[in-house]
């Protein structure tokens, strides 16, 4: 039996963070491949050969018709059963930034037990009305079933999006998701004491997009499918931090790596 988890990092159509997404999974001890979506559609490659799927950030189809919509449709219409089988097999999935938008628009997140691919939430335009690249501080829900964020408290990461305001048209769902620990990660004031995640929307730019309940990322009920707007893969090394030149640090792995290591270890311990 192989002991190195294999990661399918999707590419094509304007996905553009596949290089660093591959790099972080490899740093975390996995073997990651760049997998063009069409290679899964035409059967040249198969998700069956992988234990983790990552939908990286980018601007798939230029964000036209709503970020993630068209790529979500490619997966929802073109790869429907392959993706459902992957999720139902209990294999971890992550969507980062545009990848998160894809997973939400195709209904995989926050998702449902049947993996019916029905959209229940969305990512609206930031209240600022435009794209922004800035650093934010995130806090993780210690009671979340999310296997990706296990043991994590806080993390500093860049956000780089124009449509990251997590909303839904049925507010009762928010309570359900909160109850089941699906609101796995939220924006938080870096100057506050841990834990301090709250439902009250934090001022801009602590919350860069005015997301409801400061939600930065969510997982499905199983905790295996996870997505977030910020970019943990962009904080893979200490020298990429926003203020690292002001800090006395031992250089090495960055704060974002825990997420990827968590998933790789989960696969090693539970699936291989």
């Amino acid at each position: 039996m192989v002991d190195t988890p294999r990661v399918a990092v999707l590419s094509g159509f304007g996905i553009n963070c596949e290089t660093e997404t591959i790099a972080v999974f490899e740093m975390a001890g996995a073997k990651a491949d760049r997998v063009h979506v069409n290679r899964l559609v035409n059967g040249e490659m198969s998700l069956d050969d992988y234990q983790i799927m990552a939908v990286p950030g980018g601007f798939s189809f230029g964000d036209h018709l709503g970020s993630g919509r068209l790529m979500g449709n490619r997966l929802r219409f073109g790869l429907r059963e392959q993706v459902r089988a992957f999720v139902k097999a209990g294999k971890p999935v992550i969507g980062i930034c545009n990848g998160f938008q894809v997973l939400v628009k195709m209904g995989l997140l926050p998702g449902d037990e049947e993996v019916s691919l029905t959209q229940t939430a969305s990512l609206a335009l930031n209240d600022s009305g435009h794209y922004e690249n800035r650093w934010a501080t995130l806090e993780f829900d210690p009671n979340s079933p999310c296997i990706w964020t296990k043991g994590m408290t806080r993390m500093r990461v860049p956000v780089r999006h124009g449509e990251g305001k997590f909303v839904t048209d049925d507010r009762t769902l928010l309570d359900e998701w909160a109850e089941s620990g699906q609101l796995a990660v939220r924006y938080v004031n870096p100057d506050s004491d841990y834990p301090s995640a709250s439902d009250k929307i934090l001022p801009y730019p602590i919350s860069p997009n005015q997301s409801w309940r400061n939600i930065a990322g969510v997982c499905d009920r199983t905790g295996l499918v996870f997505g977030l707007m910020p970019h943990p893969e962009a904080n893979h090394s200490t020298w990429l931090g926003a203020t690292w030149t002001r800090e006395e640090i031992e250089h090495g792995e960055g704060e974002g790596m825990t997420i990827f290591r968590n998933a790789v270890n989960y696969v090693k311990n539970s699936l291989l």
Binding site: N16, C17, E20, H130, Y131, R160, E233, L240, T245
Partner: peptide, 15 residues
């Protein structure tokens, strides 16, 4: 400047 992505490719040391 903030509305340009300056960190894609995860290589940005001095921003």
């Amino acid at each position: 400047v903030r509305s340009y992505d300056h960190e894609v490719i995860a290589q940005s040391v001095i921003k």
